[in-house]
Amino acid sequence: MTQGWHTLYAKSRDKAHNSSTVVTYSFGIVPGGIVSPKPNASVQKWVTLSAAAPAERAKITYQYYDRLRSGFIDIPPSDVFAPGSQTSIPAWPQVRTDTSTNFAELSWNMLKTIQESGTRYVDGNWEIRACLEGGSQPQECTKPITVNSPGPGSMALPLKSVLGRSR
């Protein structure tokens, strides 16, 4: 299995071939994994960031791949907010106090970050990763996930909305 967050679905069957309901088990392979956004998700201006990691990994920094610098850089803390807050986070890394749960969700203004980075094109594929710290291990980053941004002014309408009828 690859590193990151995985979900296993299981059900049992007795001798009479009666099946149980599906049970879901979620688990991560070190160093942890991004829970949100999902790989290949289509994202707009705001992106929800969330990750899971072993208890000893209590600090997190999110990064994105900067096309101009050809490398991963920290997402500017000024573009990241706790959901419902109008105050950005003060700095990276963010620390979780309850290590029995996932890292708290954060809202990232991805469009602002990318536009202010000097990148000419906002649309296309973007890579995001989480870098985790804590315990006796050095900082380790998750395998990047790719999200797709259609760019500003783009919108996805159902065919019915465009044509006025279903096809």
Rank of each mutant, 00 (worst) to 15 (best):
83 P>D: 01
41 A>Q: 09
123 D>E: 07
71 G>L: 13
124 G>T: 08
116 E>V: 08
110 M>I: 06
128 I>G: 14
86 Q>M: 01
141 C>Q: 12
134 G>L: 04
36 S>V: 03
144 P>W: 08
57 R>H: 06
112 K>F: 07
37 P>D: 01
65 Y>H: 08
96 R>I: 01
107 S>V: 06
87 T>E: 06
36 S>C: 13
38 K>G: 02
137 Q>R: 12
39 P>T: 02
66 D>H: 15
33 G>K: 10
68 L>W: 04
127 E>D: 07
116 E>C: 03
60 I>R: 13
134 G>C: 06
95 V>N: 04
77 P>L: 05
80 V>Y: 09
118 G>H: 09
94 Q>S: 06
48 T>M: 10
98 D>Y: 06
129 R>C: 09
91 A>L: 03
65 Y>M: 08
49 L>K: 15
43 V>K: 04
72 F>Q: 02
70 S>C: 11
62 Y>F: 15
95 V>E: 02
62 Y>W: 14
92 W>F: 04
101 T>I: 11
107 S>G: 00
105 E>I: 08
95 V>P: 08
35 V>I: 14
80 V>Q: 06
129 R>G: 04
100 S>P: 05
114 I>Q: 01
104 A>D: 06
110 M>P: 02
68 L>D: 00
39 P>G: 02
59 K>N: 11
45 K>V: 15
88 S>G: 00
35 V>N: 05
70 S>E: 09
87 T>P: 06
129 R>M: 08
135 G>C: 05
127 E>M: 14
38 K>S: 10
31 P>G: 03
